[in-house]
Design a protein around this nucleic acid. Structure first.
Lengths: 229, 229
DNA sequence: GACTCCTCCCTAGCACTGTTAGGGGCAACC
DNA sequence: GGTTGCCCCTAACAGTGCTAGGGAGGAGTC
C-alpha cells in the first residue's frame, strides 16, 4: 500500500541508523493494542503497522511472549515512583502507589490482559518492587513481611484492575456494564434472591472509591501485623 | 486412522443415547487442561480425546470461548457451599469460602488461567455470588456493601490464585519458584538493594498462611466499614 | 579497491489454529 | 413409508506464530 514512499523514507531518515529497535516495536505494539484491542493484535498486524513483514520482528524479539513481557514492563514503567521517601507516612505512600498503578493499568486495558500469569520482573517491575519493599522495610517491617507486603499489593491491584476491565472498563464497550447489570436483575429472584436484590448496585460505574477502600483494608491489615510482631 | 473400530464402538455403545453432551465435553476439556496444560489445549485435541472430529464440537458448543465459560463455571462449582447459615460467625464463613475457592482454583491451574477477564456468572458462579451476598446481608451489611464485599472477595481470591499459579504452582514446574528466587537473588544489589535483600523470602513455597492473612485483612476492613455506617 | 563480516530486512513455507459450509447416516415420530 | 431432526462427518478458509534461508548494503580490514 505505502510501499514506494516507504523506500524514500528509508533512504532519507535511516541511512545509517537502524530504523527499528525493541523500544520502537514495543511502542507500536502498545499503540496497536490500545487502538484495536487485544483480539486484533497479531505479529503480522504489528509488522504491518511498522511497515515491515512479520518475520523481521523476530530479529528484534525472541517471541510474541517476550514481546508481551516487554509490553507489561513498559506499562508498569508508566507508574510514577517518588524519588526518595516523601513526607507522607509509609501507608499513604503505598496506597498512592496502588492508586497510580491501577490508573496506569486501566489506561491500557488490552495490555493489562497480558499481566495475569506473568511475572512483572522486567526492569521497571523490579524498580517498583524494590521501591515498595524499601518503603516497608524502612517502616519497620522485617524482610519476610516486607516481601509479602509487596506481593499483596501487586496481587490486589492486578486482580482488581483485571476484573474491573473485564466488567466493561474497556474502550468502546462502556455499556457492557449496564448490560451485565440488566442480566443480573433479570435472573429468577427465587433462585438467587440476594444477588438479584443487590444487582443494581453490584456494578457501580465508579470503582475508584471501592478500590481505595479495599486497598486500605489490606494495608491496615499489614500495619496491624507489624505491630503484633 | 482409527476409523473402522470407531464404527464398531459407535454401533455398540451408543445405539440410542447421544454419546456426547456439554457436560461430557466440559469434563474431557478439564481433564485435558489438567493433564497437558493450557498451551496444549485446542479444539482439535479435545475432539481427539473424545474420539470425534473438531467440527462436531460446534454442534454442542457455540465457540471455544463459550466452552471456556462453561469450564470456569464448572471449576467454581467444585467450591463447596454450606447449605443454610452455619454456626460460625459470618466473617469466618466468608474466610472459609475464600480458602475453599482458592484450593479449588489451585487444583486446576490451567483452567484458572481462563478466569481473569471472564465474568464468573454461570449457574455455579451465580449460586456462589448469591450465597456470599446473602451471608453479608444477614450480617447487617446494606445492599451496596454486601455487593461490594462479594466483589472484593472474588477479586482478591482470583487475583491471588492466578499470580500464585504464575509463580510456579503448576504441576511439573514446581521448581520454577526456586528458579525465580535465584534470578532475584542474582540481581545487582546496588540497583535493587531492598529487593535483593528479601529475595530469598519473597517467594515462600507455602502461601496459604499469607493468603489467609491477606483475606482476613480484607474482611476485617469490610467489618470495620459496616460498623461505621 | 577488494575482501569479509554483520546488521536487518525479505520471500517461502510449515504446522497449526478456530470456525463454517454442506453432506449423510440414522433413530424417532406421524 | 416418509419426514424430521439429531449428530457426526469431510473439506476448506482465513489466519496464526515462527523458522529456514537468502540478499542488499554499510562497516571494518587487508
Amino acid at each position: 500500500m505505502a510501499g514506494h514512499d516507504h523506500v524514500f523514507a528509508r533512504s532519507q531518515e535511516t541511512a545509517a541508523a537502524p530504523r527499528l529497535d525493541r523500544t520502537e516495536i514495543v511502542r507500536a505494539a502498545l499503540e496497536l493494542l490500545d487502538a484495536e484491542g487485544f483480539d486484533a493484535f497479531s505479529m503480522r498486524r504489528l509488522a504491518a503497522a511498522l511497515d515491515i513483514k512479520s518475520p523481521s520482528l523476530y530479529w528484534h524479539v525472541r517471541s510474541k511472549d517476550e514481546l508481551f513481557d516487554l509490553l507489561v514492563d513498559t506499562v508498569i514503567g508508566k507508574c510514577p515512583l517518588p524519588d526518595g521517601d516523601g513526607a507522607d507516612p509509609w501507608d499513604e505512600q503505598v496506597i498512592q502507589l496502588g492508586l497510580d498503578l491501577r490508573r496506569v493499568l486501566l489506561a491500557h486495558p488490552a495490555a493489562t490482559r497480558l499481566l495475569p500469569g506473568r511475572l512483572p520482573f522486567g526492569p521497571h517491575g523490579l524498580r517498583l518492587a524494590d521501591h515498595v519493599i524499601g518503603l516497608l522495610r524502612r517502616a519497620g517491617f522485617d524482610d519476610r513481611m516486607a516481601g509479602y507486603g509487596y506481593l499483596l499489593l501487586m496481587f490486589f491491584v492486578t486482580g482488581f484492575a483485571v476484573q474491573e476491565i473485564a466488567f466493561g472498563k474497556g474502550p468502546g464497550n462502556g455499556d457492557r456494564l449496564a448490560e451485565v447489570s440488566r442480566y443480573l436483575e433479570g435472573l429468577p429472584s427465587d433462585r438467587y434472591p440476594d444477588l438479584v436484590a443487590v444487582a443494581g448496585e453490584l456494578l457501580a460505574p465508579r470503582l475508584t472509591d471501592r478500590f481505595e477502600f479495599g486497598l486500605r483494608s489490606v494495608i491496615d491489615g499489614l500495619a496491624e501485623k507489624r505491630r503484633s510482631d
